[in-house]
């Protein structure tokens, strides 16, 4: 099968290449329907990764958040036309004691290998999670939600104090979806979101309180924190988290930064913080995310308001347009593939 792969070859330059797709017995042929642009894709597209990294990783097709239509499954288990979420993690190795999304032997698409901007994607059957019913486009957020679920599970198994009040730093997509996952899975927890832009914070209508980072009231305290800021602002966010998190609190880091971020280790020691790093997710996390979307009306409804814009992709230049729009939109930009 000949497939069209839309690769980023240089900053803001996408080119189509033709590739033969092999599909063996355990492989299902799919066509991506909805693709969601994430911050990591934007960093590649706009050339915000280091020159050395770009030299190693490009050319590469972007996007690791996708839903697709099944075109052909020779086992007959998945019907032609049925819908599924694509799992970006390729589990090549299982190392005892290491969760598969942290195993360096397991590649993640759009990070060194081609992502999902293609007309056909052939994937192993275990990398497809069937979906059905209404609200199908929002299942494109399954991967992002699964990263939050992965972080929440790590948090739950690490924390040693009650989760009465949880603070989330970051008013972007990761902050939004982590807040939403917390709201759905821990309905009794009080959620405080701290961000930079009031307009974006207003979108977090389901949380208890929101503050811009310069207006956090004196004397406020939280039990645990999730840092979803990333970039150069991480340092300020982490400093603020350290100041107002109660002793023995659990601090989850989810924001990606290109540069090393200095932290005050003295405070970590003095307050006995537990710091957890979180990155990516595996197929099990994604199944939990799909179940949460399917079973929770709250999750479904608030995921729809995470969509800033849906861009129809009918030709190559529409992909660039979608990326340009993503830099202007407050929240998620989705590509609807009609190419």
């Amino acid at each position: 099968m000949i497939s069209r792969v839309y690769r980023l070859v240089d900053t803001k330059r996408i080119e189509m290449v033709l590739r033969e797709v092999e599909f063996e017995d355990d492989v299902v042929l799919t066509a991506p329907d909805y693709l969601s642009i994430c911050a990591a894709d934007q960093r590649y597209y706009f050339g915000k990764r280091s020159r050395e990294i770009l030299k190693i990783k490009l050319p590469m097709a972007l996007i690791h958040e996708a839903t697709a239509t099944v075109l052909y499954d020779n086992s007959g288990r998945l019907k032609q036309g049925s819908k599924a979420v694509l799992v970006p993690l390729i589990e090549k190795a299982r190392t005892s004691g290491i969760k598969s999304n942290y195993d360096p032997a397991n590649p993640y698409v759009s990070s060194g290998i081609d992502g999902f901007i293609r007309d056909y994607v052939a994937v192993q059957r275990n990398r497809l999670i069937p979906i059905e019913g209404e609200y199908l486009p929002i299942y494109v957020f399954s991967e992002l939600l699964s990263v939050a679920i992965n972080a929440l599970e790590a948090f739950d198994s690490t924390r040693c104090t009650d989760a009465g009040t949880v603070g989330i730093w970051g008013d972007g997509n990761m902050g939004y979806i982590t807040s939403l996952a917390l709201k759905c899975l821990y309905p009794d927890v009080e959620i405080i979101v701290v961000g930079k832009t009031l307009r974006k914070l207003q979108r977090f209508s389901f949380v208890d309180r929101t503050y811009t980072f310069d207006e956090v009231p004196n004397g406020i305290s939280i039990d645990h924190a999730f840092e979803c800021v990333g970039g150069s602002s991480s340092e300020t966010a982490i400093k603020q988290i350290f100041d107002i998190t109660m002793p023995q609190g659990c601090i989850s880091l989810l924001g990606v930064s290109e540069e090393a971020v200095p932290i005050n280790t003295r405070t970590v020691l003095e307050k006995g913080f537990r710091i957890i790093g979180n990155n990516r997710s595996n197929a099990d996390d994604m199944k939990k995310a799909v179940s949460l979307i399917r079973d929770s009306d709250i999750c479904k409804k608030y995921l729809t308001t995470l969509i800033s814009e849906i861009v129809e992709v009918k030709e190559e230049k529409d992909i660039s347009h979608a990326f340009e729009q993503s830099s202007l939109n407050d929240f998620k930009t989705i590509m609807k593939m009609e190419i």
């Binding site: 000949i2 092999e22 056909y120």
Partner: peptide, 14 residues
């Protein structure tokens, strides 16, 4: 890896 006509047919198969 395949004859030209098979590549073509596959687009109609799916």
């Amino acid at each position: 890896k395949k004859p030209i006509i098979i590549h073509t047919l596959e687009q109609f198969f799916i």
